[in-house]
Design a protein around this nucleic acid. Structure first.
Ligand SMILES: [Mn+2]
Ligand SMILES: [Mn+2]
Ligand SMILES: [Mn+2]
Ligand SMILES: [Mn+2]
Lengths: 138, 138
DNA sequence: CATTTAATGTAGCATAGGCTACAAATGGAG
DNA sequence: CTCCATTTGTAGCCTATGCTACATTAAATG
């Protein structure tokens, strides 16, 4: 039994990053549909702070992964799978953000930090955060 | 004043990721030098769980950023700048890990999660973690 | 010291995600 | 309906980071 913990940690982080784009996209799409009734490529690009070209290409990949459905010049639609992922990602994001705020991190720092941290929180870490929130609230 | 918070959060996360490789490399190099007296390409590749080819190429970039010094077939050396970054990264990593453990996350989950989360923790988030550790210890 | 093994480097390929410049489609105003 | 502004798509470029296959250098071993 060699020390393979570090290897596994780095691997896990790479895996987290591989799913990060998909999670952030479906999350943003879901929110935009909720807020504006539909999600267009340009709107999404503005929200993510990147060019519409990158968004368009990434959406093709997400479509091939059965997370979104796209038709030329039409609004972006989430598949059932995409919607489920979005719901999960939104819950997790909210939890991590609320946790940081409860820990005493100012909101203007907690918001950007949560955006990155959320993708690296395993179920047990999320549980610990929930526990902390419950204890703090009482 | 439009809602540009999301844009900035995504941007910040992309910036975090851009420095992540450098941070993890110098951190691992520093630890390997401490543990084994020197750091070789192969050893580093084993530790990171990637091929020696990727390590070798990435080291060229880090050398151009004045973080490491490399000579063909020689051990990897950290520059002063690289060593300073390593010291900072190690401190931060340890803090995040200890924080997660103090929060009640089992070590076998805290270790991999900390590896990714560390890169997204702003100074104020780190301060909040330190505060929590102090309060918990007492 | 010759030979084999291990370490390192190099060539070349792939994917993901940035970009600008330009082309084409859509939809609304006149 | 025509024309123009906006949206979307496409071509083509870049960097970072993964890989395998192979070449070369260094080190160990008999
Ligand atoms: Mn995110
Ligand atoms: Mn990350
Ligand atoms: Mn680290
Ligand atoms: Mn790390």
């Amino acid at each position: 039994m060699t020390r393979r913990s570090s290897i596994d940690s780095y691997r896990k982080t790479r895996v987290d990053h591989a799913s990060e784009t998909a999670e952030d996209y479906v999350e943003a799409i879901d929110e935009l549909i909720e807020q504006e009734g539909q999600c267009r490529v340009t709107t999404l690009a503005r929200r993510l702070g990147i060019s519409h070209v990158t968004v368009s290409r990434t959406l093709s990949r997400l479509a091939s992964e059965d997370l979104v459905e796209t038709e030329p010049y039409r609004p972006i639609v989430l598949t059932d799978k995409g919607h489920a992922l979005a719901a999960w990602a939104r819950q997790r994001h909210e939890l991590v953000l609320n946790f940081l705020k409860a820990l005493g991190v100012p909101e203007n720092v907690a918001i950007p930090d949560a955006e990155g941290m959320e993708h690296h929180c395993s179920p047990k870490t999320l549980s610990a955060m929930k526990r902390f929130l419950k204890e703090t609230r009482s």
